[in-house]
Design a protein around this nucleic acid. Sequence first.
DNA 1: GCGAAAACTGTACCGACGGTAGGGAAACGG
DNA 2: CCGTTTCCCTACCGTCGGTACAGTTTTCGC
Lengths: 205, 205
Amino acid sequence: MRKGEETRAKILDAAEISVLAKGFGATSIDELIAETGITKSGFFYHFRDKNELAKALLERYVENDERIYDEIFSRARELADDPLQAFLLGLKLLSELLSDLPNGHPGCLVAVICSHERAFDRDIQEINRQAALMWRRRFGAMFRDIMQVYRPREPLDVDQLADMVSTVIEGGIILSKALKEPKNLPAQLLVFRTFIRLLFQPAAS
Amino acid sequence: MRKGEETRAKILDAAEISVLAKGFGATSIDELIAETGITKSGFFYHFRDKNELAKALLERYVENDERIYDEIFSRARELADDPLQAFLLGLKLLSELLSDLPNGHPGCLVAVICSHERAFDRDIQEINRQAALMWRRRFGAMFRDIMQVYRPREPLDVDQLADMVSTVIEGGIILSKALKEPKNLPAQLLVFRTFIRLLFQPAAS
DNA sequence: GCGAAAACTGTACCGACGGTAGGGAAACGG
DNA sequence: CCGTTTCCCTACCGTCGGTACAGTTTTCGC
């Protein structure tokens, strides 16, 4: 029972690394069982097929992602009383965390799934959608808090502003990879941070 | 000679649609030859292997991409004398163009390659990198023009600002797909446009 | 410590796919 | 009409995802 989850986790660990590096199609089951020291039958005991592996992988990834955001922004909230300052601090903390990853961000599974779209069933696409909606809700709540204190210099839709956070992160991951400049993602986050500061900065200079 | 290029183009057309929809791994050669009415030998006459197909696909995609940007921003430049106004207009035109696509942006091949990274050889990764660098140069030049006339309200690195354009586009494509909201990408572009307007807006209101 | 369930192993097999090899044949251009 | 380009045909190989199923070990609750 607990042993089973351990093996399952080992498979998922190996799969995540490989999928983020090579894509889902190029990640073979044979390769995963070789790395985890399990047999093919053992693999299919845990996952009915490759699609279920993808599903489990994505679910785990999204959970972990949420946990990291929870940690960072709750810590930022503790350190700053003002909602705007807390958000700006959160972005900074996130940028620093990403900057400390030696090889840059390994890649976002949500984006990988998007690039493969029709290769997966609706279950997976729905998990993906829910993940993006969670981001929207999370950052949307923060912007609503900010707007109770500060008036934006330009009227902007809260949801679109919240989506912009995810957009910059996802886009930053891709650009970092394409350019082979791991520092690009944290840098982009800081540029976005400047935009937010500008947006809520009082009109008088 | 011309017949050959025609067939080649037909293969690339089918491949591009399929790759953007399902990813590269899930796009089978058998499927491509069925759609183009060619035989397997015929396919391998045009492309030594799947990797060369990817390379040709990416090269064609990047060229087309550049052409579209050229058109939009040169038209914007004709309509507006001021570099800032021209850029803002260009973003608006781009947003409208993306908004008119009935099923949303089909996906960016550069991003797909990034998600598959290690599955491709260095040639392809280099083409990808050069494409991202071209974007940086293109938008960097625009921002430099703008900065000769306007002083940004916050000091920002020109390259990072230029990368932000690509970041928003790539991130917007992913978010649009994840959320299944095709209008998300053009909306994000307009949010970014607001940020740029804010950045270069004179301090006095 | 025992029995049942959980967690595997082993073997044999299947179809689809990427790719190779090589011998052609139609189409076209000069 | 000759040669190159462009493609077809057949046969084959290894890998991969997946199935089937019987057998074995490990683990855990009682």
